[in-house]
């Protein structure tokens, strides 16, 4: 299910939102490695799911305003440029 951005999200700046996305993604990646060796740790799994939902919310809100992070997020409008016209992450201005 696609989460709608709530009002405070809409007032968040691009850099601030990207920082949130990276933070969520970091928690997810780190927990994933832990869960690989502790697959039955329900507490770790709960944290994973919580941050997965948070990541989804920020990634969707970011996509609507600043461009998509994954090509699967492209919509008919504004189209492919939401993926292709944003700077690649190795450029200073993308960070």
């Amino acid at each position: 299910m696609r989460n709608r951005p709530n009002p405070p999200l809409e007032h968040m700046g691009k850099a601030e939102m990207m920082q949130k996305i990276r933070a969520c993604q970091f928690v997810l990646r780190d927990l994933a490695l832990y869960l690989d060796t502790h697959p039955h740790d329900q507490n770790a799994l709960r944290h994973f799911l919580m941050h997965r939902d948070e990541w989804q919310m920020y990634a969707d809100a970011y996509a609507e305003r600043f461009g998509v992070l994954r090509m699967e997020q492209v919509e008919e409008s504004p189209g492919w440029t939401a993926w292709s016209s944003t700077p690649f992450p190795w450029e200073k201005e993308a960070n």
Partner: peptide, 14 residues
């Protein structure tokens, strides 16, 4: 593999 258009940790060198 799928690409996500962000670095895992930001790199911004002045």
């Amino acid at each position: 593999f799928q690409y996500e258009k962000t670095l895992q940790y930001p790199v911004k060198i002045a």
